[in-house]
């Protein structure tokens, strides 16, 4: 019962927050986004002030009362000082790099000043909303960036939760905070799982015709050998003649390249996606062109870093189609 009430409450709060602080990658802190309330220390400070007042009244000591009034005045002023300082902040999220499942995505937040004449001071603490791990950045130092790690247990595309930022500048009497949604999505690729590379020549569903990748390529040219290239490509004849190490280069014929394909075997689909991931990485590493066919996503064969990420992103989005890939 209690947990249900709590989750209902949380849901309502989230709804309200979405309306009040809509997502954006770059946000100025304003009166709409900043919340402010006396911190625990501020309440303690008030209790101390009350003690001084009672002491001053009992001893009929006007200086103590004056001290009490001054402290009260400072408490009042701090409401504005804290708020103004915090409202000079501008928060900007840097684009997020995709990660593999069971890794940590890291959201880089940039703390800028939206006010040239007066920059914000003090320590700003940041954490994911409803989480305890707090990182802090000192705005008076040269560092303006903070990396918040986000654990990504499973494959998929997730919107990042809201981050909570709070500051207690200057005296810790008030706590200014905000819950920002920086409108970032993290793309989580499957964890690579070692397996045999299987390229299908054509997309026909049925008999998979496994092919050796390099076997059918035509000889094209000789080029200087680079460390790490497969030894079977080395032009041994050339080496034996006492020449430099050169390796044979092969021309890639579009017609001969194959596709990686998701075969829905009815077993664990995540496992299959992990295997595909491994194969994509392997093929990219070897600079072999390949295409990818998922249920209704088809990526034409190509190669290179960008292609690799395109394919991996498709894996992350599966079974949905990644429109914005």
């Amino acid at each position: 019962m209690l947990t249900r009430a709590k989750s209902f409450w949380n849901f309502r709060v989230d709804q309200w927050l979405n309306k009040r602080i809509p997502p954006a990658a770059k946000q100025d802190l304003t009166h709409r986004t900043i919340f402010i309330f006396p911190a625990w220390f501020g309440l303690g400070y008030l209790v101390t002030c009350a003690g001084l007042f009672i002491l001053g009244a009992n001893y009929q000591n006007n200086l103590m009362l004056l001290l009490f009034d001054l402290l009260l005045g400072i408490f009042l002023l701090n409401l504005f000082v804290s708020y103004l300082n915090f409202s000079r902040l501008q928060i900007k999220a840097q684009p997020l790099h995709p990660v593999f499942a069971k890794g940590h995505a890291s959201l880089t937040i940039q703390f800028l000043s939206n006010n040239k004449a007066r920059s914000p001071h003090g320590v700003v603490n940041a954490c994911w909303r409803r989480e305890k791990n707090i990182l802090s950045i000192d705005l008076d130092s040269d560092n303006t960036q903070l990396c918040l790690p986000y654990f990504t247990p499973r494959r998929g595309v997730y919107p990042l939760p809201r981050i909570t930022l709070y500051s207690e500048y200057p005296f810790g009497l008030y706590r200014c905070w905000t819950h920002l949604n920086l409108n970032q999505h993290v793309i989580v690729y499957p964890t690579p799982l070692a397996c045999q590379v299987q390229l299908h020549v054509e997309s026909g569903i049925g008999e998979p015709s496994a092919t050796q990748q390099e076997g059918h390529d035509d000889f094209y040219a000789l080029r200087p050998y680079h460390q790490g290239e497969p030894l079977h490509r080395v032009a041994w004849k050339n080496v034996a003649k006492g020449g430099d190490w050169v390796s044979k280069s092969f021309s890639h014929q579009q017609t001969e390249t194959g596709y990686l394909q998701l075969i829905p075997t009815g077993t664990d689909i995540e496992l299959e996606l992990s295997r595909l991931c491994y194969q994509i990485l392997k093929l990219s590493e070897k600079n072999v062109p390949f295409g990818l066919i998922l249920a209704d996503t088809r990526i034409e064969p190509s190669q290179g870093e960008q292609h690799k990420h395109r394919c991996l992103t498709a894996l992350a989005y599966y079974p949905k189609k990644g429109n914005n890939v």
Binding site: G122, D138, D140, Y169, P170
Partner: peptide, 11 residues
């Protein structure tokens, strides 16, 4: 002392 506590790097 209090402000030094909350802004360790301010001059």
């Amino acid at each position: 002392a209090l402000i030094s506590f909350f802004t360790p790097q301010l001059s």
